[in-house]
């Protein structure tokens, strides 16, 4: 690999890192803000109808990640504590309005789906023994469906990363071919072939890309 190839490879790696890092940064800061907002609601609201409205808005805004499985356990614990406090306040009223009942139901649903309390309820400490079987030389052949499924997932993620801000599929293809050639990225090679076949089926002229694909294939094999 010459100097320009090394620089191109570094460029591609840094761009890929920044794309993923920005996505991660946005999701983490969104969760952090949501948890802080919920704690504020739990501690500050004295008015019952205002509390109902605020927690309703919070669920509407944050349901997507709040019910997901990517929250840190510390954040999950803070959410659970705040929701318990709010639920206690709301259930003090014997003549609760339908809106309050709806919120209480929503909180119950969240807590039912929350895996954290189930972990803490375990009374006894359990021991899990993992046993490892003998090494299987032909393991890959036995799980060809699983292997292809993993490949497909990786290629799908790669496509999402590469197509993020592109206006045309050929710009994506150009990126994946570069990645396959310079980084010797096998997944990028597979994705490139996939896109080329898609373009061919839709009547595009693909011969220049097929030529680049063959070069990329040689690079991935280590022939270049």
């Amino acid at each position: 690999m010459n100097r320009i190839d090394t620089l191109r490879s570094l460029e591609s790696t840094l761009e890929s890192f920044l794309t993923r890092a920005v996505c991660l940064y946005e999701s983490q800061t969104g969760v952090c803000e949501g948890v802080n907002r919920l704690s504020d609601i739990a501690s500050n609201s004295d008015n019952m109808s205002k509390l109902t409205e605020q927690i309703g808005n919070w669920f509407a805004e944050h349901r997507e990640w709040a019910t997901g499985d990517t929250i840190l356990s510390a954040d999950r614990s803070r959410i659970n504590k705040a929701l318990s406090s709010i639920q206690n306040r709301l259930t003090e009223d014997q003549n609760a309005s339908p809106a309050i009942n709806k919120i209480v139901t929503e909180i119950d649903r969240w807590r039912t789906n929350d895996p954290a309390p189930q972990q803490t309820k375990e009374p006894d400490r359990q021991t899990i023994v993992l046993r490892r079987g003998p090494e299987m030389v032909n393991g890959k052949e036995a799980d060809s469906i699983g292997a292809f499924s993993h490949l497909f997932d990786r290629v799908t993620n790669l496509y999402h990363d590469a197509s993020g801000n592109k206006k045309h599929i050929m710009s994506v293809l150009d990126d994946t071919l570069k990645s396959a050639s310079l980084q010797r990225n096998r997944d990028a090679l597979v994705l490139s072939a996939f896109i080329i076949y898609h373009l061919k089926l839709n009547g595009y002229k693909v011969s220049p890309f097929v030529k680049r694909l063959k070069e990329a294939e040689r690079a991935v094999r280590g022939d270049l």
Binding site: L7, R8, E11, M170, D174, N202, G203, Y204, K205
Partner: peptide, 26 residues
Amino acid sequence: LVAVKSEIATVEPDNELLIEEVFSGG
């Protein structure tokens, strides 16, 4: 990344976009 891009532009001044514009129907 900006420094790397700048270095690439120095090393490879005739940097051309290789995408060939192709329309449907071949």
